[in-house]
């Protein structure tokens, strides 16, 4: 089983992806090692609850301006990592920094740069939407531009009439919208979002993606956990995958897709014989006299060389999906 071990996650993935011909991931790494301070820097972070290790020796850097998707099954340690960054949990060992500020010794400076959306919004039902937003803006010591806030109301379709209502009258989706607004309203340089689209309808999910795109264009950094792989695939630049508290994958979106096999279907003009062996990384799924179904990991060159000698009528290449990569890692963990 291949995985990014603690402390060597980056180098391992760089090496492996380089072998696969991925270049963009390496360029991402170059950006990280520049003098530019990472938005998030996590070094050897471990959190234990008695004998249970919720997070084990996590090493991760999020560069400024990127959107990093934090993936993992329930209980993988995603929320634990987020809560450690925000000083809600105290680490067993390790360090974490937000824009160079130690999350514990300089917690105020670190958190002053963060907009946070928790997985579960603990809001008082007897407050109105406006009261919640004003209160949270007030204790954030972050200036909130009224036009910016209004823009968020409009984009997430939360009218003033709803914002004047008590939260006990809010639906789950409305609460989630309010949560997003409170996280985005001060336009912080770093957004930490825990399952941001949970409870949002498809239209609002679209609005959220646009919001995220805008934040990215303005150079904001986004660190988001999600279960929705299509969403991660769409909005994230990189993914970090946790399994049982350990980082098992850290790669750019494009490079990560190359970790999964592409599905190839080859159609022939006439019956062909199945070759006795295929190049490494090639695997037959099904074979028929005039059709082959294969899975290919890595470049297609060797396969094309084989096919060049055969009467090929058509070739169908299905790009690898993030889902295939992630599920593979999940299954490896389960097994």
């Amino acid at each position: 089983m291949s995985k990014c071990r603690a402390g060597e996650a980056d180098s391992f993935c760089v090496a492996r992806l380089h072998k696969l011909g991925a270049t963009d991931f390496r360029s991402e790494r170059v950006r990280t090692t520049d003098a530019q301070t990472p938005a998030i820097s996590i070094r050897g972070l471990t959190k234990q609850y008695g004998s249970l290790t919720a997070l084990k020796d996590l090493n991760l850097e999020v560069v400024q301006g990127e959107v990093l998707g934090f993936l993992g099954l329930n209980g993988a340690g995603k929320t634990t990592a987020i809560r450690l960054l925000l000083d809600l949990l105290r680490p067993t060992s390790g360090k974490a920094f937000i824009f160079g500020h130690d999350c514990w010794t300089e917690g105020l400076a670190a958190r002053a740069r963060v907009g946070y959306l928790p997985g579960e919004l603990g809001l008082y039902p007897d407050l109105t939407g406006f009261e919640v937003l004003d209160f949270l803006a007030g204790i954030s010591r972050q200036a909130v531009d009224k036009r910016r806030r209004q823009e968020l109301f409009d984009r997430l379709e939360l009218p003033h009439s709803d914002l004047r209502r008590k939260l006990r009258q809010y639906s789950t989706g409305m609460k989630r919208k309010l949560g997003l607004i409170q996280a985005f309203q001060a336009d912080p340089p770093l957004l930490i979002l825990d399952e941001p689209t949970e409870g949002l309808d498809p239209l609002m999910q679209e609005s959220f993606y646009v919001l995220l795109q805008d934040a990215k264009q303005k150079g904001r950094t986004v660190f988001m956990s999600s279960h929705v792989l299509s969403e991660v695939e769409r909005v994230c630049d990189r993914i970090a995958l946790l399994r049982k508290g350990e980082l098992v994958l850290l790669s750019s979106m494009e490079a990560s897709r190359q970790l999964a096999p592409r599905r190839i279907r080859v159609f022939f003009k006439q019956d062909v014989r199945v070759p006795p062996d295929l190049p490494p990384g090639h695997e037959f799924v099904e074979t028929f006299p005039q059709t082959w179904h294969l899975n290919v990991v890595g470049p297609l060159g060797p396969l094309l060389a084989v096919l060049a000698r055969l009467p090929v009528k058509d070739l169908e290449v299905q790009e690898a999906r993030l889902e295939d990569v992630v599920l593979k890692y999940y299954r490896e963990g389960a097994s």
Partner: peptide
């Protein structure tokens, strides 16, 4: 609720 307020400065 503590999450929301303590995640701030």
């Amino acid at each position: 609720f503590a999450d929301l307020i303590l995640a701030r400065p």
